[in-house]
Nucleic acid binder design. Sequence first.
DNA 1: CAGTGGTCTAGACCACACT
DNA 2: GTGTGGTCTAGACCACTGC
Lengths: 262, 262
Amino acid sequence: MNHTLPQTEAPAAAAADSPATAPAFSPLYQQIKGLILQSLQASEWKPGESIPSEMELASRYRVSQGTVRKAIDELASGHLLIRKQGKGTFVATHAEHQVQYRFLKLVPDQGDLNTEGPAQREIVDCKRLRASAEIARALALRSGDTVVQVRRVLSFANIPTILEDLWLPGTAFKGLSAERLADYHGPMYALFETEFGVRMVRAEEKIRAVLPDKAQRELLKLPPSTPLLSVERVAYTYNDTPMELRRGFYRTDTHHYRNDLN
Amino acid sequence: MNHTLPQTEAPAAAAADSPATAPAFSPLYQQIKGLILQSLQASEWKPGESIPSEMELASRYRVSQGTVRKAIDELASGHLLIRKQGKGTFVATHAEHQVQYRFLKLVPDQGDLNTEGPAQREIVDCKRLRASAEIARALALRSGDTVVQVRRVLSFANIPTILEDLWLPGTAFKGLSAERLADYHGPMYALFETEFGVRMVRAEEKIRAVLPDKAQRELLKLPPSTPLLSVERVAYTYNDTPMELRRGFYRTDTHHYRNDLN
DNA sequence: CAGTGGTCTAGACCACACT
DNA sequence: GTGTGGTCTAGACCACTGC
C-alpha cells in the first residue's frame, strides 16, 4: 500500500499513445511539501511569520514528525522557509538583513557590501505601457497587456554602478509608482512582498558582455567604450509564475559578478 | 553525554584572551561525514567506483544506518557522491555524461549543448613557467614556484567561442603536455582525475565585461570592439585546496552565461 | 531472489531561546 | 521550566537493480 493522504490522484494520462512516463510514485513527504506550499501560496502564513511547529503539522496532516521534518527540510533548502533552532520555522522574506539582496551577485573587488555601505538609489522612470512581444513572452502575458516599466540607477560610494530596467505585470502591481519606490527604504523585493503580496522565490539570469548605448553611457557617467555586464533576469513566485523581467547593466571595473559553483 | 566516536577532540583554544567562539558541538553524522571525506581524499574509493553500502558503513563506524544516511546525503548534495537507488552510492566523477561540463555555464542562445554537439578543442600553448605573485596567491603557492600554463580555444559549430588561459601547480601536474591534452577526448577535469588523481569539487568565479587585446581578438577571429565575458575561476579539490586558476574569455553574441538563483 | 538505497514510524534525548 | 528545532536509534516496509 502506498501511504496516501486524500492525495491528488495521479493525473492518469488520458491519451494512451504517449510514452506514458511511469505512474510516478510520490512519497508522503512530497505530498506534505505540496500542502505546505499551498498554504504559503494562499498566504495562510505571511513572510516573516512563523509556521506551526513540526508536532502540530504532524498531527494536522496525520503523519509522523519525521515526515513533516523532511518536507520542511526541502522547503528550507530552497529558501522558502527558514528554520531557527529553539524558536520555530519562519516564512522566508527578502526584508531580513541576512538575506537582503540575495539575488544581487555583484560585489566590490575590495571589501564587501558591508564596508561599502548601502546603495544610493535613483528612480529614473516609472510608467505603464503595453507589453512588447518579447516582454509578454518572458512574463507569460499576452502582448499588449499592461506592464509597469521602471528604470533606476544604483550607486556605490557615489559612483553610478548599476542601471536597471524592469518590467512587472500591470495587474499584480497596480499601485506602483515612482514615489512609492523612492520612499521605500530597503530591498525592492521586500516592498513587493509587503505592498503587493508577491514573493520572489527563484530567478534565472542570462549574462552577456555588451557595449552601452548613448543613453546608458550618460546615465552611468561612463568613459567611452567601457563594456558592461548585461544581466537579464526573470524572477518567479511560488508556482513558477514569472513576475518580473529585469535587465541590469553592471559596471565591472570596480565590482565583479561573483558566482560559486558546486 | 555527547555521542562521540574516537573523536578529534575539540581543539580547546590555548590562548584565553580570544573571544573563544564556543566549544563547537559536532553532531555524529558530521563526524561520519568527515571520516568518509578522509577516505575520499585518500583515494580509498576512486571516482566512478561504488563505496560500501550504508549498512556496511554503519557497522564499520558503529552507528545506525540513519546517521550514515544523513552524512551521505550531505556529501551527495555537494556532488561528491552520487546515490543510485538499487545499485549503490558512487564517487562522483567529471567523466559521466550527465555531469560533464558541470562548471561550464555558457550555453547557446538557441537550443542546448546537445543540439550543438561537442566542442572542437585546440591547444594553442602549454608550457611550464614560474608563478607570478598573482597566480601564486590564487593557487596558494610561493611566487616563483613552477606552474603549468595552458592556452586553448574552444569552438562550437566551427565558431571560436571560448579562449581560456589556465594555470596548474607544477608538482601535481608533472607529466602534462600539449600532446596529452590534445589526445584526450572528454572533459579536461576528467583527465585530471584519471591521470593526476586531482578531482575538482567546487569553484568560485569572478565575472567581468572586458575588451579583448589584439592577440585575443585574433585567436577568436573577432570583429573589432566586440566585448567579451571575462570569467576568472579558481577550482578546489577536497580539502579546499586551490588546484587550478582559469581565465576564460567568452563570446556572448551567440551564447550566454546562464545562472540559476535560489 | 537478494542487495541496495528510499520512506515512514515512534520514541528518546540534546541544544537553544524565551520567560 | 517549557517549547522549539536537531540528533540518534531501531525496526519495518517500499522501490529499484541485477542475478
